[in-house]
């Protein structure tokens, strides 16, 4: 490891992972540039849009405002970790069914944040869904389809259990 670099070990989408990177890189930059997981998006870079949201130890955080070195020892889930091999996560299916994605740029952040909500509160109501997703901005859909998709996914997941 060179001067000015860090090495971390963490669990990324269920796999033990180690990665070396320049100290100044954010988790978002390391995911995209060092680990080639480009599902997580660069948005505003300042915590105003939610496009870079990932789960760290199950909680949604903004990967653009987190230094990657802080992810050492954590469990990180990105949008690439939602599907079960070729089977989409119920949230991903519902987003497709409901037209909850148009340009798709904000979708990974919405999916990760919604997953955290349903993991914690599988029967979340419309108000709880809109509050949980308040930090994610979508400029295409007008949000209604997104809320409906989360409700549809919650209903499907409840039936499966």
């Amino acid at each position: 490891m060179k001067n000015g670099e860090q090495r971390i070990e963490f669990t990324l989408n269920g796999d033990k992972t180690s990665v070396t990177f320049p100290t100044f890189k954010t988790l978002l930059e390391v995911l995209r540039e060092e680990l080639n997981l480009t599902g997580t998006k660069h948005g505003c870079e300042l915590g105003e849009c939610g496009a870079c949201a990932v789960l760290v130890d199950g909680k949604p955080v903004l990967s653009c405002l987190m230094l990657a070195v802080e992810a050492d020892g954590t469990k990180v889930t990105t949008v690439e970790g939602l599907a079960d091999d070729a089977r989409l996560h119920p949230l991903q299916e519902a987003f497709a069914d409901c037209g909850a994605a148009q340009c798709g740029y904000c979708t990974p952040g919405f999916l990760c944040t919604a997953k955290a909500l349903l993991d914690k509160k599988p029967d979340a109501n419309r108000r709880e869904i809109s509050e949980a997703l308040a930090g994610n901005i979508c400029r295409c859909t007008g949000y209604i389809q997104i809320f409906e998709a989360v409700e549809q996914a919650a209903a499907k997941m409840a039936v499966k259990k």
Partner: peptide
Amino acid sequence: VATPQIRNQ
């Protein structure tokens, strides 16, 4: 304060 994600950080 801010958004749910920011309150988690």
